[in-house]
């Protein structure tokens, strides 16, 4: 397990940067107004979330829109946070895996991923949670090919996708049968 402290925090880098900064701006992330100060214009929404707002759930695997590990909802549409300029998210609603977790709306997806063995190193996992949430609310009973196409922008290097697709079927079955998962899987960490 990685250490709990002193390695987490929500403030960002301080001191004088060697580049042009933008005026402070405000983002609405997971329903909360957050101010971004001293940011460089070129900072992606992904960087702002991870390094300035203390929300590292969206991951930084490729930073070029080719892996889906930074998937977030921007005004209810799933996008790669690495391809959104932080300042261009002003006035939009940003929802991250942390927000979806807090609201409980992805609890069954999360539980199914763990139960089915769809999590190994876990770096792609938050992106899959967001993309799966987006898919299953739009197409609850999507067939296998539809699921695969919807997830084709989320790379996983560990699982070969088999257990992740298994988890999707499990969620569909549970939701279709109206089965509530109740509580999430045990967290022995």
């Amino acid at each position: 397990m990685p250490p709990e402290e002193p390695l987490t925090g929500s403030a960002g880098p301080a001191d004088t940067p060697a580049y042009e900064r933008v005026e402070p701006y405000e983002l609405v992330v997971n329903g909360t107004r957050m101010t971004v100060e001293d940011a460089w214009l070129g900072e992606s929404l992904l960087f702002v979330l991870r390094e300035r707002l203390g929300l590292p759930g969206a991951k930084n695997a490729c930073e070029q829109g080719e892996c889906g590990s930074c998937s977030v909802l921007l005004d209810d549409v799933v996008v790669c946070a690495c391809l959104v300029l932080g300042v261009d998210a002003v006035g939009s609603r940003v929802e991250t895996v942390e927000g979806l977790t807090a609201s409980g709306e992805v609890a069954d997806i999360q539980a199914a991923l763990v139960e089915a063995g769809g999590v190994q190193c876990g770096f792609c996992t938050p992106g899959f949670v967001v993309a799966l949430h987006d898919l299953l609310r739009r197409a609850p009973s999507a067939d296998d090919m539809t699921v695969r196409e919807a997830l084709s922008g989320n790379l996983c290097r560990c699982t070969g996708y088999g257990r992740i697709l298994e988890a999707v079927r499990a969620v569909q079955w549970q939701r279709g049968a109206g089965v509530s998962t109740g509580e999430g899987p045990g967290d022995g960490a």
Partner: peptide
């Protein structure tokens, strides 16, 4: 645009989004 920014290939002095 953002891929180029992320990889240091584009350094916009100002942006119109």
């Amino acid at each position: 645009f953002c891929v180029e920014v992320n990889f240091g290939l584009r350094r916009p002095p100002a942006v119109v989004a």
